[in-house]
Design a protein around this nucleic acid. Sequence first.
DNA 1: TTGAAAGCGCTAACAC
DNA 2: GTGTTAGCGCTTTCAA
Lengths: 356, 356
Amino acid sequence: MTRSAERRGRDSRRRPTINDVARLSQVSKSTVSNVLRDSAGVSPATRERVLGAIDILGYRPNAAARQLVARRAQTIGVVSGDLANSFNAELLKGIEAAASPHGYMALVCNTEGHPDREAARIDALLKQGVDGIALLEFSGDRRVVSELLTRRVPTVMLACASDYADSVAVDDQAGIEMGIEHLIALGHRKIAYVDDALVEPGTREARLRGFDMTMLRHGLPATPDLVVTWDEDALAAVDRALAELFTRTDRPTAVMTADDAIAIRLMEACEAKGLGVPDDISVVGFDGIAIAGLSRISLTTIVQPQQEITSWGIEMLVERIEGDHGGAPQQHFLRPKLAVRDSTAPPPAADRPRSA
Amino acid sequence: MTRSAERRGRDSRRRPTINDVARLSQVSKSTVSNVLRDSAGVSPATRERVLGAIDILGYRPNAAARQLVARRAQTIGVVSGDLANSFNAELLKGIEAAASPHGYMALVCNTEGHPDREAARIDALLKQGVDGIALLEFSGDRRVVSELLTRRVPTVMLACASDYADSVAVDDQAGIEMGIEHLIALGHRKIAYVDDALVEPGTREARLRGFDMTMLRHGLPATPDLVVTWDEDALAAVDRALAELFTRTDRPTAVMTADDAIAIRLMEACEAKGLGVPDDISVVGFDGIAIAGLSRISLTTIVQPQQEITSWGIEMLVERIEGDHGGAPQQHFLRPKLAVRDSTAPPPAADRPRSA
DNA sequence: TTGAAAGCGCTAACAC
DNA sequence: GTGTTAGCGCTTTCAA
């Protein structure tokens, strides 16, 4: 008795392999393989026999062995800063839906926004042998970039962008501009910006720049003292900054924000301090997450076409994986939409510009 | 020149293998392997040499090959009904956090609550060779159950339960009871139940049963006409049922719901119809999702200890994967907590029971 | 139509 | 310490 046969005898719970099927159905494993991948050229009779054996044994092909030969894992990694954040969760859902028909599954990881964790997680994804990576968040860490680039790992950035990789995102500056111009149209002149440290770094910067530029273009003050950065780790400081901002004699009458999550927190904070939204202050969000549309929240916001972002993005990624890999990274920018709801209104009478 | 050497020459972009490293560093591949898994017994000198070669070549071990030998993929599948639903997203985040330190990554799939899709997705997970499965949602489809059972695929149900597998969940009946008793303590007697067709089937049933039993125990009417099922596909019918419910002369003054998502939608629906929450009607949710705590929502709800659920659940799953696999499924039920917020208040004066 | 044999890239005995 | 040698379970020429 050979060693392997011996082991087989002892351990009958062992997963059956293609060899077991071959033996039982009295054919070679190539034939079994042919049946499995129903490649032409197997006689109906053998075919039946093999199928029968497969059924009897409860055989399932081993994924690792296939992947080893195919040199493809049929998985893509998804890197997110915070999976519990609605926008990311919605994107993930879209990614799953887009990847699935192509035969890819999504391996998720959460970075908490820390570059170190991000690098570690991406490394873990690479170790897992993912075929490609979708970044919802990217710190731009050099180690990671060079790793991804030198290994030519197909990568796509969704709802964010950088030169390193393909991307599908919204035109952030245009979005911010839409929000601000909506506020201006309502009569606001003193407009602040509340930044969110948890927004994807590149996106965050683009939005902030959008704020500065739009304000400038409209001849409005966009001084740094109108900008507050919301940071999970320094809530007390944020509180102070906000209190300072809203008690100034020339206090802003409206706020543009970096994302819906922070906009909603801001509304909470304002109301906790007795500032009504939109009566005392108007707030505009960014992203268009589902809860922003609840009547209790009713946040005016810049809506990202997330369905388009994910389906187009995954399409590109799959193409990179299965195509010839060549060509420079492509950046695609979609136009966001303004959804006007109840968090914005004309400024209080005292602050209204004298009309002509 | 051998065939493989020839191919190697042509295709210099080919991923380097352990053999390339071995050749470059002038050792055998076992030694390279030893260095990789830093197993003892490699002289510092060789070690350096190998490490150098690895660095030069930019070598990374092939995941599929390792998995093939290790007979383990280091992945777990996560099956969810709706990834965009906050509760699931929060659970997923917890799963990722719990699995990661054990060296497992999460492969997600979304079933949309359809048993067919669920079966297909679980099949895909099995095809991928996941080491275990975490079910946030389970239709109980026979095909799936038998597949999972006969293949002894380690499985854990999180925030839901069934006899088939290990599970960590909340005691649903106790939770519902807490909610109802809170309402009763506030003076409510006419309490309705709004069911959610999207809740995991077993959980959904347990909660509904909890409603019936608690009402019964308190000698209150729990007739089926106080129960409305919210179904995405039949919104019009829901609208009618709700309208009918709230215009009865003995209309309920409070509603217990199957989950937070539906509770929030219910609040929206009530307010759209001019019924104030909590002034005209009190609403209690179930789950304790983050947004329920926003002051704009402020939903009184039954909070599930999701952090405990995910960490304990993944612990069990990993144990099943790496342990001896033996033993009967274990069910663990945790006690939920009541979070009293602003969606509940005493019933309107007219409906208040005459006090003693 | 079917089978033999050579890998895919790695780990793990076991020998030296 | 280091190398040799079998596999792990599958796909894929290439013969027969």
